[in-house]
Amino acid sequence: MTVIIKTDKLSRHYGKGNVMVKALDGVDLEIDSGEFTAIVGPSGSGKTTLLQLIGGLDKPTSGDVYLKGTKVSAMAPGALSDFRRDHIGFIFQAFNLIPVLTAQENVEYIMLLQNRPKAERHEKAMSILESVGLKDMASRRPAEMSGGQQQRVAVARALASEPDIILADEPTANLDSKTGADLIDLMKEFNEKSGVTFVFSTHDTKIMERAKRLVRLVDGRISEDIRQ
């Protein structure tokens, strides 16, 4: 198994002096390609910060992040944007979708950034929406969908760019337990079918049970790393 995500003494601090907060404190982590990993821990443990640093959404205070062997923590902003576009899919906790675009247009958006032809975008978007069970919702805007449906569209969008890694930051936080479980099962299904590496954060124990690997964070450090 090849290592697809590697963090080396990764730290992120906010503030200075007496008011400095160590959101992450020297985290070393390796995740293999194709893994389905849950980052767990209480609120404020650094789950979101870790995912943001892995995804290049934030710069570390110290340490490095390597994705597919590339040192993303040292990339220029433009190159990092392009790297995210082509290799990383994101599913955020809430407000994932662009409100003025339909479900289909939201899925196509990432492919638009990749300059794919219109016909290809359209065909792929409809295909992916069908695979998440939302082909009939293609022309609806986010406000016309339930929370669970919106998250499914977010999964579809994340997959549309054919990424190597999908990072999901508490994707089930605003969903009821059944809908949340269904979403995790969907992500697991895609993980097993396509081999895309999934890393998601959660503090829901029922969701944790579905992950193959659990990395527990406490106060910005890894306290446990369990393969289930």
Partner: peptide, 14 residues
């Protein structure tokens, strides 16, 4: 702001 954050996160250039 959040929406722009999502767009930037997806790979939208500044």
């Amino acid at each position: 702001h959040y929406e722009f954050g999502v767009m930037l996160g997806l790979g939208t250039r500044s």
